[in-house]
Design a protein around this nucleic acid. Structure first.
Length: 935
RNA sequence: AGGCGCGUAGCUCAGUUGGUUAGAGCGUUGCCUUGACAUGGCAAAGGUCGUUGGUUCGAUUCCAAUCGCGCCUACCA
């Protein structure tokens, strides 16, 4: 007999079961004909998994489990990313708390320290993944800085360099003055902020004047301090106002430099004065103009964004914002400040530091993108890689078309140090290590070389993820077997950062795509649709949903270490309001089910805990249905199809439909449909109807043993199978229940995890059973309707009469009589009235042409019934009118397909006959009321 | 500015070639502790499918315009 507790308690089963799965080696690929592999998007090693990860991992695990059960050789490759800048920041902050700086520690000690932290922190992620039930192959876990991976990174760098696709140069890059490193375009976020637009007068050289007669031109800027680096003034070539000045010079105030006045079509004559100051060293557009006109590039900023020695003495060493004020003040004193306007400007900030980045000229390493981008575009165009949903392909193309060269060097310590060495004259030698670099250039051993101190940006290494994790540059067995991977599951926020770069690098180095499909899921927001963030204090930790958390702990968690402590009160209040009782322990399965149900394509998710609660109840429902089965099925003989009742046949038929639907849903990545059909089947077909119908057999002392056996074996068979179907979404509860159920089905395996997923059968659906049970449901529902309307208690038995209908109605009422009896709680046997028999005072509902009649027990009920009839007739009449005008339209008859016309005609016929029947009933009731009132 | 997506019940969302009375969960209301489950059962109320046009016999669905929201990209100094 079953050991199952009487309610579902996830705490009691999850941890232990996962440990067993892992220990038993169920996650490792088992040999099979066809491989199926997914590489996990590697989370940052020092982070914790947020709800977005949990979502993503659930989808991947559902796919992996489905494919594993479908007989594929599945590899879910896991691992973590060293996350250069993010990790270095975390450890730097830790040091700051100990009042230590990076320079105090030195590079080797710092790196040692980061490794320590990585070892401590890395466990958090794997623990979280285990709690989510993720069936990853832990034995193959990788890290982007482990030895093998680092070798792959060096190999790629050297090869690209040898192929001329990596170059070093002094270029204008985004400079983060807080982190003191270059950033790629993607690592910069732009946001509109209120600012000012200052208009300055730049005096012209002696004797010159504009057409207005001014001896100066007016330029406008949002960053006044950059004027210290101006090297030209630009006007539009066709701007009449300034045409005579082109080729002449103005004098840069405060500095005294002669600025050539140049003509360039970039200038918009409509904007401002039509004159633009040009600062080639500190503005991307100006830089391009500078190149076109051969202008001098004067870098006026130090690495922490102070004014450097290239500017006049009074400004040197001033912070950029202090310099801004100083410049404005000085120009004002000179009478050269014309106006200041308020102006909304787009401020570029480093996504990690939040600091305003400055375009700055520095020596950096770049990857030439064009030769890599072309094949990457082609691979998606020709279908080697397909995006799901497809619309993301456009986004990908748009970005790939005008992608610029990729700055890959970062002035950081944590990461892959660039395998390039310099001699004392600054000549560069690239190789996998110093020895190789020397050998490549035949350098004498007495020449001193120094390695480039910079590291490669994180995405450079994660771009190699799908193949470097499988052993590349060695041609390993796994690499050949599992690569290309089957699908990449990711969010649209990193299509550019990661997906595009993986495609480029993999095509270049492997000559094949990294994955055949990219499933792009939505991003998770809170219930109100707001982004979850630490500062807003609206984040939800997936573990808190699984294990539960008290209100106090939740508030504490959300308000600790806030960057803006004054938010604490608001966060506390909002949290109290939203989770007055904290969060209860819903368990992993409920959370996973929620994620799947939410995963409609191309849509963000407003995560609402009440959904989780609903699916937790669903787990409980399944749990209890299984208990019912275990309590009532004592032994099962061999299932003999000819003994199956209509109900048995019906649920088997529905089961087949479920299997078909599940296959379709999974193969099109419709996790939402998958979850919905499972939910619908388990709750509203299996539990609501089939389990209830079997009670007519189990609780009937007169039932024949073959009926009991048929019901028993059907219950077991269907339950066993639906557990398989549901397993990829909700692995814990299904495996736990399955271990109780499977022996009754004659299956002795240890785990559901490795059982075959039910395959679609050609056997088809049982139409006869479907029709019969649908009829039964309709009649039962009609009786319940009447009960509801009249307030008849469920415990009170009623008399059921039937009248009219077709011969089939009569036949169905016979074959389902016992079921009807119990489900509708009937007092006596069903009474069939002849068409001409008078109908007693009663409520009537129609099932197509069949009259479902429940006589009154109290004549006073007539009034209410009359009202109900009237409104019913009214409703039907409206539909009838609509149908009538439709069918009265000759165009419809002529142009609509014949089957549509026939269907509408049939509806019309049925409706008008129903209305007629109801009218007669109205009339009959009137008469009865009349009779009772007169007597 | 351009691109993409979204507006369907009080809330969160399905709706797959245009065709019954537009569905589900949560919430609400009423009745019910019936021997798996009150984390339950039965029933009910609730929608001019953002708006306006167009195509069509027929539009929540296709097209155009428009309003509102969101995201992404690029920005005129």
């Amino acid at each position: 007999m079953s050991q199952l507790a009487d309610t579902f308690n996830p705490d009691a089963i999850e941890r232990e079961l996962y440990a067993e799965w892992e220990k038993s080696g169920y996650f490792a690929p088992s040999p099979a004909t066809e491989p199926y592999s997914i590489a996990i998007p590697p989370p940052n090693v020092t982070g914790t998994l947020h709800i977005g990860h949990a979502f993503q991992h659930t989808l991947m695990d559902a796919l992996i489990r489905f494919q594993r059960m479908s007989g594929k050789q599945t590899l879910w490759q896991t691992g973590t990313d060293h996350a250069g800048i993010a990790t270095q920041m975390v450890v730097t902050e830790q040091l700051a708390a100990e009042e230590l700086s990076l320079d105090d520690l030195g590079r080797p000690a710092f790196i040692e320290r980061v490794w320590q932290w990585r070892d401590e922190s890395g466990g958090t992620i794997s623990e979280q993944m285990r709690r989510m039930g993720s069936s990853v192959d832990w034995s193959r876990e990788r890290f982007t800085m482990d030895e093998g991976f680092s070798r792959a990174v060096r190999t790629v760098f050297v090869k690209l360099y040898e192929q001329g696709l990596i170059y070093r140069g002094k270029r204008l890059v985004n400079w983060d003055p807080a982190l003191r490193t270059a950033l790629s375009d993607l690592e910069v976020t732009n946001e509109d902020e209120p600012g000012s637009l200052w208009h300055f007068r730049y005096p012209l050289e002696e004797g010159l004047a504009t057409t207005n007669g001014d001896a100066y031109v007016v330029v406008a800027t949002t960053r006044p301090e950059t004027m210290l680096g101006d090297t030209a003034i630009a006007v539009h070539p066709e701007d009449e106002r300034y045409r005579t000045l082109v080729g002449q010079h103005a004098i840069l105030p405060l500095v005294g430099r002669r600025l050539p006045i140049i003509a360039d079509p970039y200038v918009d004559p409509e904007f401002g004065t039509g004159c633009v100051k040009i600062t080639p060293a500190h503005d991307f557009n100006d830089n391009e103009i500078g190149h076109r006109h051969g202008l001098e590039e004067i870098d006026i900023l130090s690495q922490d964004a102070r004014i450097n020695a290239n500017a006049p003495t009074p400004y040197q060493d001033l912070d950029r914002f202090d310099a801004r004020e100083q410049v404005v003040r000085d120009l004002k004193e000179l009478g050269l400040l014309e106006t200041v306007e308020e102006h909304t400007i787009t401020i570029p900030r480093g996504e990690r530091s939040g600091e305003i980045v400055e375009p700055r000229l520095t020596d950096q390493w770049f990857v030439e993108i064009e030769p890599l981008a072309q094949p990457a575009i082609e691979a998606v165009k020709n279908g080697d890689i397909a995006f799901v949903p497809k619309q993301y392909e456009n986004l990908y193309f748009a970005w790939m078309r005008d992608v610029r060269d990729w700055c890959i060097s970062r002035q950081q310590w944590w990461g892959h140090q660039i395998p390039a060495w310099y001699d004392e004259n600054g000549n560069v030698f690239v190789g996998e290590n110093e020895k190789a670099a020397r050998a490549g250039a035949n350098l004498d051993s007495d020449i001193r070389l120094t390695q480039d101190p910079d590291v490669l940006e994180t995405w450079f290494s994660s771009a190699l993820w799908t193949f470097a994790t499988l052993g590349w540059p060695d041609e390993t067995h796994e690499l050949n077997l599992y690569h290309p991977t089957s699908v990449l599951v990711t969010g649209h926020d990193i299509i550019f950062f990661w997906v595009a770069r993986m495609i480029m690098m993999t095509l270049h180095f492997r000559g094949e795509v990294p994955f055949k499909e990219v499933y792009v899921h939505g991003l998770i927001r809170d219930a109100k649709g707001e982004k979850m963030s630490k500062t807003k204090g609206n984040g939800i930790d997936p573990l808190d949903v699984i294990d539960g958390i008290s209100l106090d702990d939740l508030i504490a968690k959300r308000t600790q270490n806030l960057t803006q402590p004054r938010m604490a009160e608001a966060i506390t209040k909002a949290t109290q309001k939203e989770y007055p009782n904290g969060i209860r322990n819903y368990g992993s399965d409920a959370l996973r089910f929620t994620f799947c149900a939410y995963a409609s394509p191309g849509r963000n998710i407003n995560f609402d805990l009440s959904r989780v609660e609903g699916y937790h109840y669903f787990c409980n429902k399944l749990w209890n249905a299984s208990r019912f089965v275990l309590m009532n099925v004592h032994s099962i003989g061999e299932l003999r199809v000819d003994n199956q009742s209509l109900a048995d046949r019906w649920i088997v038929s529905r089961m087949r439909q479920l299997i078909i639907d599940a296959h379709e849903a999974v193969s099109s990545y419709r996790f939402d449909l998958y979850a919905n059909v499972v939910y619908e089947f388990i709750w509203h077909e299996f539990c609501d109807w089939y389990v209830e119908l079997t009670k007519s057999v189990f609780f009937d002392p007169t039932a024949e043993s073959r009926e009991v056996e048929a019901a028993s074996s059907t219950l077991i068979t269907v339950l066993e199978m639906l557990l398989r179907v549901a397993h990829p979404i909700m692995p814990y509860i299904t495996d736990t229940l399955w271990r109780e159920i499977a022996p009754l089905a004659g299956i002795t395996a240890k785990t559901l995890m490795l059982q075959p997923f039910p395959q679609m059968q050609d056997a088809g659906l049982d139409e006869e059973a479907d029709i019969a049970i649908n009829w039964l449901k309709d009649v039962i529902t009609a009786v319940r309707n009447i009960r509801g309307e009249r307030g008849v208690k469920p415990s009170q038995e009623v008399v059921l009469m039937l009248q009219g209908g077709t011969p089939r109605d009569k036949q169905l009422s016979k074959t389902t009589a016992k079921l009807l009896q119990r489900q509708a709680k009937l007092r006596d046997e069903i009474v069939w009235l002849d068409p001409d028999d008078p109908v007693p005072a009663s409520s009537v509902q129609l099932v197509h042409h069949l009259k479902v009649i429940v006589p009154f027990t109290d004549p006073d009920e007539s009034k209410a019934e009359q009202q109900r009839l009237a409104s019913e007739i009214n409703k039907k009449q409206k539909t009838l009118d609509k149908l009538g005008s439709k069918l009265g339209n000759p165009n419809f008859i002529e142009k609509a397909p014949a089957d549509v016309v026939a269907r509408e005609q049939a509806r019309l016929d049925e409706l008008s006959s129903q209305i007629e029947t109801l009218r007669q009933q109205q009339f009959a009731l009137d008469k009865i009321i009349g009779d009772t009132t007169t007597t």
